[in-house]
Design a protein around this nucleic acid. Sequence first.
DNA 1: TTGTAGGCGTTATCAC
DNA 2: GTGATAACGCCTACAA
Lengths: 329, 329
Amino acid sequence: MARLADVARAAGVSVATASRALSRPDLVASATRLRVLEAVQQLGFRVNPAARALTSGKTGLLAVCVPTLANPFFAPIIAGAQQTAEAADRHLTVVVTEGSARREGEVLGRLASQVDGFVIVAPQGSDTALLEFGTSTPAVIAERVVPGLASVVIDTPTGLRELVGVLRADSHRRVAYLSGPGGSWMDRLRRAALRESLGEDGELTVIGPLPPTFRAGAEAVSEILDRRVSAVVAYNSLLALGVVFQLHLAGVRTPEQISVASADDLAALGLGAPEISALHFDPAHLGAAAVRVLIQLIIGHEPASSHTRIPAHLQLRSTTGRPPAGGSG
Amino acid sequence: MARLADVARAAGVSVATASRALSRPDLVASATRLRVLEAVQQLGFRVNPAARALTSGKTGLLAVCVPTLANPFFAPIIAGAQQTAEAADRHLTVVVTEGSARREGEVLGRLASQVDGFVIVAPQGSDTALLEFGTSTPAVIAERVVPGLASVVIDTPTGLRELVGVLRADSHRRVAYLSGPGGSWMDRLRRAALRESLGEDGELTVIGPLPPTFRAGAEAVSEILDRRVSAVVAYNSLLALGVVFQLHLAGVRTPEQISVASADDLAALGLGAPEISALHFDPAHLGAAAVRVLIQLIIGHEPASSHTRIPAHLQLRSTTGRPPAGGSG
DNA sequence: TTGTAGGCGTTATCAC
DNA sequence: GTGATAACGCCTACAA
């Protein structure tokens, strides 16, 4: 592999000049720069990341830290992050914490000196732990807000308020929320949004925390029916699909007897076939946005906004509608 | 951060000895080694990967290359690979090719000098392209076999033969296979296994290629019914679930009127609620095994077997059984 | 604007 | 078994 020295020789300049021509072109006469660039082309030169890392301290490696890959919400985040990192000529390494705050802490500590920065998705640790970590290492938080740190979230709460508005207009009053995997910051935010927008005379029943699976949704149906709600909002579309499926089996019709909606829309799973009403957004955008912010942080440009919201759009489909007259609504 | 020089000083040895004590302990007197290790502990020393990479040429980075992350089959592969890589003290970077052979080639080329080796999952490129690449760079192929390269596959074909055996014993004769995303090597192998094991008087109808989604499964039902098969085998459980769901809606009972099975069992999605018969395996094992083989390759130990098969176990559940008497079976 | 020189932290090659 | 010493490829004062 061609080294910078080869390029320099070919261009008839010193190594230092060749280096500058690549990393700080403004410091080099344009004619010189041109010769260097040409030589680079010619020789197919590419910097040796290790050598660069040794002097500059920048490895060109970004880490994205997710609680799990079993929840299909997280995979597209990684895809989006990877694409953006690649476009910025950086590598992305993925680490899975299995939802353990302890492991999260270990992983972050172990990697801190090996990567240029972190995207931490749905972190498990405490605010203070994250804050301490994030002030010593470039990091952006996704799907959570930690005061003082850069963060990127999908604005499901606003979407949920809109959804509740529609449900209320259809005179639903008793709503169940099938909550996602336990202890998630975002999940709390969603519950709060639902509760608040249901208003004084609305009633929110929280079922869960539940694993974000089809099976869990199906199994929740008996409780849903017990609770005599007229509408169900599920943490994700696998849960929602499980609910719809089991309701069908139980002979309960949607939306005539009960409305079902999902707080996310896992489009990639093609789960929309029964046309479940849902909040629509692309998790890949989350990953992409987080990496963009992270890179700004790393190169020292304070990002324009350290708190990015990605909108979620309400998609009303065929599983929501007016509740049965004289029902609970 | 403590450098090796600090460790050496603390242990009262030369840098060279300290280095050896860590990377080739057998070359160092055990007393010395002990002192060095102690100093390492004391100072919290950790090698600088960049410096090591500069001299050794090994970056400690492994790449895993997948066609997509939208297909939920691939996410757990990455999780398994990551865990194994981490245990071997290496990083894992993920790249997504979006199913494009061109992009796959570009990505591999671009990364070849930056990583120690590749796990290429369900590669898109030709055998010859892969062979050429794989002989110049440590690489293991997953979910495909390329003669001359190390590979790891899940043995669904054997599992499918077993499944067909059961179906035949139940006197099914006309079987449909819902094929997965187009052009996959593994998919061809599955079709061949089904066709062969159905025997002379069996009939295999291939529907697809289909996206591996719930929706696609649901939409395939009309064609399934048209073809008058008594059993359906789907590429994955999302497809199978879509089929089961839509069959229910159409008033067709499983397994009384039609049997449904899936060639994989995406347990993480909790898709088993309607108890779909399926081949069970853990994709994470695939990723883990591939990384293990890759590391052997990298450190020069020819792996014990360059062709690893991961067994798939037939799980008969409630969607398979005898076809209607006098039916197509 | 360009060149010279030193160093980044580790490993490898020699001698001893 | 151990210790000097020279790379590895690049960056960056500093000097010119």
